[in-house]
């Protein structure tokens, strides 16, 4: 596969390390009343869609960016690649 890195251009997927669903960005609030339930869902439950999937890849053999890649799990077609940090900020994550 080829991942079109937003800063570096097309790169072979072998340069990257895969983590999983981009929902891993949405780490729950540790002080919420139902923190345990939330962390259980965050840590363990997955949509695992057959189709478009937003997922985290890390450019370990490159610039060490974490990327959010939108890829179809049926065809492997990649339709978007974003810097994970931008996605995280857009989702309201801070310090």
């Amino acid at each position: 596969m080829i991942i079109n890195h937003p800063l570096l251009g097309p790169r072979d997927a072998a340069e990257f390390v895969y983590l999983g669903d981009a929902s891993l960005i949405d780490r729950p609030d540790w002080q919420a009343d139902d923190a345990m339930e939330q962390f259980h869902a965050y840590g363990y439950l997955r949509e695992n869609p057959a189709g478009e999937h937003k997922e985290l890849w890390y450019h370990e053999q490159g610039d060490r960016s974490w990327l959010v890649v939108t890829r179809n799990t049926l065809t492997h077609e990649i339709t978007a690649v974003e810097l994970a940090r931008d996605v995280a900020r857009a989702r309201g994550r801070d310090k």
Binding site: M1, A14, Y18, D21, E55, L74
Partner: peptide
């Protein structure tokens, strides 16, 4: 292969 997929095929690496 290491990435989520439902395609019954893999890649070269």
């Amino acid at each position: 292969d290491g990435y989520n997929t439902y395609a019954q095929r893999g890649n070269l690496p």
